[in-house]
């Protein structure tokens, strides 16, 4: 637990292209969006991607497995991988969601404050530094990630199976950021 009280604001997301309208959606789009008579509220993000329902359904299943599958790397550290990728790619919306999830799961406001205020260079505690360094390199320019960075993860007691989970969590945000940050932008949450 940290003494930091740093808070990341919740944001909404607004697409640059007109999303699918639930009222006029095809059967395949409705199925992809999981619209049922009792569930007609679908986020703008899901409705935007539902223009191509086939890829949306496959990717969502993979995404959920990578972020939520039981066992392996601690869920908080998968969220940290997501946050680092989102910071590299400047996906403000993704960063805000996954910074908050990371704090909920880890209590590490101090790490999030460091990333938001000073960036990804740190310094962080040694284990966090190893995770941030590797995910940053993999997200920015994969060819610049090194086996020394992977060895540093091993030296901090992270197993190979856990590193496989970390690789996937950073990589799937190389994907998610390339959707959310290119197809729309973050907006303040509307006042209720």
């Amino acid at each position: 637990m940290s003494t930091s009280r740093f808070k990341v604001k919740a944001l909404s997301w607004s697409p640059y292209i007109e999303p699918v309208d639930v009222a006029t959606a095809s059967e395949e789009q409705l199925a992809a969006m999981q619209v049922t008579p009792s569930n007609t509220k679908v986020s703008p993000y899901v409705r935007t991607l539902a223009h191509d329902p086939e890829s949306y359904v496959a990717r969502t299943k993979l995404f959920n497995a990578i972020m939520y599958a039981k066992g392996g790397l601690d869920r908080a550290e998968r969220e940290l991988g997501a946050l680092v990728a989102s910071a590299v790619n400047r996906c403000v919306y993704c960063a805000s969601v996954h910074a908050r999830r990371y704090v909920e799961l880890s209590g590490r406001e101090d790490v999030v404050e460091e990333i938001y205020v000073r960036g990804l260079e740190g310094p962080f505690d040694a284990r966090t530094q190893a995770i941030v360094d590797f995910c940053k390199a993999l997200s920015e320019t994969p060819s610049q990630a090194t086996s020394e960075q992977v060895q540093a993860l091993r030296d901090h007691g992270i197993s190979k199976a856990e590193i496989v989970d970390l690789i996937h969590s950073a990589a799937i945000f190389g994907w998610a950021n390339r959707l959310m940050h290119t197809l729309g932008h973050s907006v303040p949450v509307e006042a209720k």
């Binding site: 935007t48 191509d52 993999l138 994969p142 590193i163 690789i167 799937i172 994907w175 197809l183």
Partner: peptide, 19 residues
Amino acid sequence: IALSELIAFVNYEARVLVG
């Protein structure tokens, strides 16, 4: 959307391979 998903997939795949 289809183009965006294709671009994003290849970037994901390359990172998995490198890792």
